[in-house]
Amino acid sequence: MGMVSNPASEAECIRRILAGERHLFHELIRPCERPIYFLLSSLLRNDTEAEDAAQETVIKVFRNLHLFRGDSQFRTWVLSIARNEGLGRLRKNETRREDSLDALTDGEAGDFTPAILTSWREVPTETLERQELGSLLRKAIEALPEIYRNVVLLRDIEEMDVRETAAVLGISEGAVKVRLHRARALLQRDLAPKLKAFAPKRGKLFGWAR
């Protein structure tokens, strides 16, 4: 997301909200809505529950705003609250998939052989129906083990830097890089053959800038 918040005006906004201008909270939280939702949807894997958890998160952020110390980015703090909300719900939910247990640990060697497709070099994005493309991508990401899914979500979908991703997830920057690498390799292997199938029937190809 392009919205880069200005920490100084953010701090001023928080000060005014705490001083009674509560309506300003709507604007404060707006840039965080997307990452909150997608982080929760990645954890919970259920759109309805993710939305409910997102609303709960935002209300918790509002109620706890006086506890924000400004020693981290506001968004990082908000996303930690979202993550705790999601984890709390997972713990309550007995039918949850224990997928984090089947994930490889970071120390384990994981050689992922990529899909080798010399004929697929370009994605015809302009001609792809967004929904179709979106659903392919979402399915591929949902199929990732949780430790990879969360990293790819924050780094590649929400375009956060390595440092903030590490802070939100409570892992080292090295672990972020390793997990991201494996996630991208798994996605490439899964998606390359499927996206290739789109190309011939859609006509004109659009190349990517290298």
């Binding site: 939702y37 899909a115 979106g134 991508l137 991208r184 996605l187 490439q188 990517w208």
Partner: peptide, 22 residues
């Protein structure tokens, strides 16, 4: 080819139109 396709996947994920809020 592996580099290009991996990069394509990364570019697609960053596209706000691909991941839209409900």
């Amino acid at each position: 080819a592996v580099l290009d396709s991996t990069r394509n996947v990364v570019v697609l994920m960053a596209d706000d139109r691909v991941f839209e809020l409900p």
